[in-house]
Amino acid sequence: MSDLAQRQQAFLAAILDDAAPMPQGWGNSQAAGMDVYRGNYRSALMDVLADTFERTRRYVGEQPFRQVSMHHIITHPPAGWTIDEAGEGFAQTCADLFRDNPEAGELAWLEWSMRLLATAPDTAPLTAQDFAAASANFGDEEWSNLRLGFAPCATARLVGHDFEAMWRALGEEGGDIPQAVLPAPQCCLVWREGERPTFKLVEADHTAAFGAMAGGATYAEVIALLIGDDPEPEPEAIQQAAMRAGAMLGLWLNEGLVTALNP
């Protein structure tokens, strides 16, 4: 390793860790300068987290947010060239540190998903009419083997809180925040409408179905997933699962999540 590489490693180690030894030959003037670089490093990352997770910050409060941010910066020092990546993994950090408030981790996940969507590739959604025309002559085999392409970065997960209400309330400083526990978990679908990231709470079974299809599963495999573990399902169960898959497909099309057939 070159002298320059060693010096840069020692310099960065001293920024990341107050307890790291100062590089050899440094005196008080370098130590004073290092204090500035340490402060710059932390404040830049803290600012990015506060900007990306604005609603999470409002929800948990300023001081707890600062503490969880500092913890995240220490445990997840950034490596990539874009500072926005500082938010990677922050939802899990919130989930780990706010164990008694699982909504904090869910809210951070939602904000991170929305942030990723904001700069995702531009795509044109397939309309219900496009889909109807393309599938008009589908036989059983075409339906069974149908795969869907979704808008890049569109995602889904189970959540236990009413984020539609919380998102609105947390949109401004100082608003009343509803304690919005859902009677049962729901699926939070997140995607982009044109240039605007958006989300919607839908039935819980969308989570697995959307995840499977986004991961490349066929329509028949999703119907099998909805039927469940029964090795010999009744015809009514198959019929019910097929109708359920059809309803989900209709919703995904109407909301603009589907961008391609058999990509």
Partner: peptide
Amino acid sequence: CWTRTSAHNSHDLLPMPLTCEALDA
């Protein structure tokens, strides 16, 4: 300036030592 090593990125504009080796790099 430099901002990163192979492992981490400071996202700050860090100072270069003003040496011939640094100039070559």
